[in-house]
Nucleic acid binder design. Sequence first.
DNA 1: ATGACTTTGTGCATCGGTTCACAAAAGGAT
DNA 2: ATCCTTTTGTGAACCGATGCACAAAGTCAT
Lengths: 225, 225
Amino acid sequence: MKSPSQPRDRGIPEATVARLPLYLRALHGMAERGIATVSSEDLAVAAGVNSAKLRKDLSHLGSYGTRGVGYDVEYLVYQISRELGLTQDWAVAIVGVGNLGRALANYGGFVSRGFRVAALVDADPEIVGDTIAGLNVEHIDELEAVIKRRGVSIVVLATPAAAAQEVCDRVVGVGVTSILNFAPVVLSVPETVDVRKVDLSIELQILAFHEQRKAGGPLMAVDGQ
Amino acid sequence: MKSPSQPRDRGIPEATVARLPLYLRALHGMAERGIATVSSEDLAVAAGVNSAKLRKDLSHLGSYGTRGVGYDVEYLVYQISRELGLTQDWAVAIVGVGNLGRALANYGGFVSRGFRVAALVDADPEIVGDTIAGLNVEHIDELEAVIKRRGVSIVVLATPAAAAQEVCDRVVGVGVTSILNFAPVVLSVPETVDVRKVDLSIELQILAFHEQRKAGGPLMAVDGQ
DNA sequence: ATGACTTTGTGCATCGGTTCACAAAAGGAT
DNA sequence: ATCCTTTTGTGAACCGATGCACAAAGTCAT
């Protein structure tokens, strides 16, 4: 089940994967400020995590640190980038060019390292043909063609909830296996497809729950966290 | 530390809290379609989770089901809403009215049950004074005054990364303890303050990681999920 | 009333993730 | 060369969350 002689294990825990982008961002900041070397302690503080956790996370990629010294910033940036697949260029399509889709298309950090908005698609004839963030908005009828033509491998769904599942089925139909869903619906997909969900209203509700607690909810209960 | 005689335990696991909004959404859909009663199995499917997990989650709020029958939809909606604190009205301020802030202000599902966008604040004199989603955009100098005047208890940060920490400090300074942060920075706050983070570029990077695996990354490795 | 059937609520085993704490490894000073 | 300091990498204990599997509790039909 495991290859003990392998330099690094190919099975990186999901929780670790979710933190790597955080480390990467902190490292980029440090690189810009000319920092050449960083200790797990300092990097952990910058990323807002505990240093033991950070070391264990990095150890899943390999032994890239030097005891007594720390990690070489540039080298670690490269290793994490490679592990996350950011050394290649990912073409992203945004489907649904309403307020949110527009914001995403213009969002700077979105297009950052490795990602490129390659297509905008919408159903509204008012919007189709417009140029947004330097891109022509194409008609939803062209969805499959656009995805193939532009080599899109990641689709961002910013459609109304009612349209999300249908669009999802269609992009999965032409081989897309990575979807970032902003529509407030549970998408049903084959298990080979990866869906990540961003849901603004869920985040707010979680905040409300804790806020209510702090304010002394139904029953007062003071409780660290 | 614990009250064993309490009808329901006040300590709801964080993982459960994060799923309650999901159940609530599914239940709302069912209520609209006139469904009066639902089994844990059906509700679990609608919410995209496993039915044992759903039952355990609900059991943390109390015994609201009827064996052999299921859960009363309306009653469960009420109980979950109350638990999440959605029976009261939360005033939300959005700071940073760029593309994203604008999208959030107009986002329908945002304003849904329990939440109300009560203020928009920005630093750009071009934008201040505009009316967006029926609200006047106010100047960042007024930040503290606006928050107090409108009774804002949840702040959404949609500012550029460079401004986020300063705005955060200021709102925390006037007593805000719940923040939803869209800026790609790690905010530093007192531990009494709850920060939730939504980071588009991190989500994309996680997708890229899995996509790379599926496509046969640096080293081919076929591996379920 | 009784029995067959359905579905909840939960004890228990398991799993993945976090944290502690320390041995191993590297560098620098003398 | 040896010792002292720093910091990594990881074994092991711990903690919370998941999922199985079943007894308890209810409904419905007869």
